[in-house]
Design a protein around this nucleic acid. Structure first.
Lengths: 205, 205
DNA sequence: CCATGCAGTTAACAACTGTTCTCTGTGATT
DNA sequence: AATCACAGAGAACAGTTGTTAACTGCATGG
């Protein structure tokens, strides 16, 4: 099915990935707008000029990182929201999903939370687009719930946005929390989601 | 009452303010971690070394900017939340307050939203502390409402945090919106607040 | 009125940045 | 087997950066 790509392209993709990994690591302690091209190549162990074979600029590296960090989450999120169970169960599952994801890919979350309002326009736009897609997917998933009867698409989109923003903020808060604070963060996040769910239940009328 | 400070200190505070203004302007298009000391002094029209007379590093400049951007808001916010009127009126007033503030001090909002998750630890901490104070003040204001009867302090804090985060996100969204999109942003923000208020009303029991 | 303190200047430092051009080695194509 | 394409190396470029030291001029306090 998939065409086996030659040794040549395989090597290229490998160092490209090395660039992404090195950059992501460096970006744990600084923002993209201060990330130097040479800094990245040094971390990879490659000549500065090699960078241009893969990206026109560090901003484009950032866009590629957005894809890597958010591109794979679509099905997961949508699946969680549309899964069976009553409201509380769904909330519990969503919070656990967030906690697990933060544990597995902390640098990805750091990066997204940081650059969502960061200084690099191209990257901000890329993140906004991905989050808008997320929100729309959550909206269609929410529309399947029986609680959504009588809801306009506009209101569902509003609710979906609220959930998405809440998830991202919870993830970001987890990163800044010490291990012993993390449970507290998750409990507050759960209560917030619950309050939103209560509002949802009594929204109409 | 206030001791008239000498010509000397007055001049110093003037250039200090010039540093803050120049930095805030430069930070509209980049993050603090990429803001150079020389870049700032150049914008002020002063020798690079003069910087050290006012701040040990650009990070401390950032902390000073946090004070300037958030320090003066406390009474305003608390006043709005505790003002008279029913829920919908309060929400309307809060949203208008946000819109006005964004119009008057866009660079301040940009800065806070950007550096809240930015690459400079000291500044992140300063913002977190100020926002925590905000949240606590909003909580005590909320406690005065009749709707808060029977609420635990913990739940009130959770609700206050939800409101504060919502305000900040609305403000940040306004900055990214084109003039014709801004009304839409405000309408969605209002609906979000309303949904939270509905959840609040039915939270107990 | 004079001595002191201190905001701001000037000059110099080694280190770093992004980008260009030229070159090399090796996988791919015919 | 001979040619081509191209990922990466190497060197050099003009500018930039943060920080140091020694300075100058002027408002201030005794």
């Amino acid at each position: 099915m998939s065409h086996t790509l030659g040794v040549r392209q395989a090597r290229k993709q490998k160092t490209r990935q090395a660039f992404l990994d090195a950059a992501l690591s460096l970006l744990e302690e600084q923002s993209l707008s201060s990330l130097g091209l040479r800094e990245v190549t040094r971390a990879v162990g490659v000549a500065p000029t090699a960078f241009y074979r893969h990206f026109p600029s560090t901003a484009d590296l950032g866009v590629a990182l957005v894809e890597e960090a958010l591109g794979s989450l679509h099905t997961v999120i949508a699946g969680t929201v549309s899964a069976a169970g009553d409201g509380d169960e769904r909330i519990q599952r969503a919070v656990e999903l967030i906690a697990r994801h933060v544990r597995e890919y902390p640098a990805h979350i750091r990066f997204i939370a940081r650059e969502r309002n960061g200084g690099v326009q191209k990257v901000r736009a890329a993140i906004a687009e991905q989050l808008a897609r997320f929100t729309d997917e959550v909206r269609t998933a929410l529309a399947e719930h029986p609680e959504s009867a009588g809801w306009s698409d506009d209101d569902l989109l509003m609710l979906a946005g609220l959930y998405v923003d809440q998830m991202l903020m919870t993830a970001s808060n987890l990163l800044d929390a010490s291990p012993e604070e993390q449970d507290q963060v998750l409990r507050v996040a759960t209560r917030r989601m619950r309050l939103i769910a209560v509002g949802r239940r009594h929204w109409l009328g």
